[in-house]
């Protein structure tokens, strides 16, 4: 087994350290929100997880496009690894949102455009994984994955647009939000620090996981080759 590259080792430590700092910022440094109380702290990681989900799926769509253009296998591996990470983080995003919504909206779930879109996005990429699972030929699996990754990524914002025409109750904290949305608030400077630091940290978490996942992929291929070798002897 090849040793872990130095850069990856460093990345592990950096990500770990960043995460500890992020936890401190979110749980202690950021002030308690006046109206919502401590449950508002869910917000920092909630948005960060959502951001990683969207980023991961964007990477999948781009990697898929590059794969179709160049036909190099490593792009397909990136696309697949990214989807797996994206599905996990989108799930964390949805669940943490639910945890927040229970005390604030007084319900675990509501059919708000953002909630629906996040769920549809999750379903699209679960379907993506199921599609890959069903196809044996690796070449075809890669091509289909790339195509579905692109079509799926296009359809998600369109879904959001179509449902957006109804009124939404989901707060928009960044940018010009509707202040009447249930649970809206303005961030204080310290909250802002915690928020952007969470985004930053989660991006590192994503990069680290992606790298590990690609490495794992290479190992499993090696194991596969070794098996073949032993069987053929």
């Amino acid at each position: 087994m090849e040793p872990m590259p130095k850069a990856l080792k460093a990345l592990n430590w950096i990500t770990g350290a960043l995460f500890v700092v992020a936890l401190y910022l979110v749980l202690i440094f950021a002030p308690r929100e006046a109206v919502m109380g401590d449950v508002q702290r869910v917000f920092y990681f909630h948005v960060a997880a959502g951001w990683v989900g969207a980023l991961a799926f964007l990477v999948t769509a781009i990697a898929g496009g590059v794969y179709l253009a160049r036909g190099e296998r490593r792009w397909d591996l990136v696309a697949q690894a990214s989807v797996e990470i994206g599905v996990v983080f989108t799930f964390a995003n949805i669940v943490s949102g639910s945890v927040w919504a229970r005390p604030i909206w007084n319900t675990w779930w509501t059919w708000d455009p953002r909630l629906v879109t996040a769920t549809v996005m999750e379903l699209v990429y679960i379907a993506y994984l199921m599609l890959r699972q069903g196809i044996e030929d690796p070449d075809r699996r890669a091509r289909f994955g790339a195509v579905y990754g692109i079509v799926g990524f296009l359809s998600v914002p369109l879904t959001f647009l179509s449902i957006r025409i109804f009124r939404t109750i989901h707060p928009v904290v960044i940018g010009s939000g509707d202040p009447t949305a249930a649970g809206a608030f303005d961030m204080s400077p310290n909250m802002r620090v915690a928020f952007f630091f969470s985004l930053f940290t989660f991006t590192f978490v994503y990069a680290t996981l992606l790298w590990h996942r690609l490495r794992l992929q290479r190992f499993s291929e090696k194991v596969e080759q070794m098996k073949m070798k032993i069987l053929s002897v």
Binding site: L123, M130, L131, L158, L161
Partner: peptide, 15 residues
Amino acid sequence: LLPILLFPVVLPVLV
């Protein structure tokens, strides 16, 4: 597989 692949993607048309 087809409905699982199709329904989430075609939602923007159906809505």
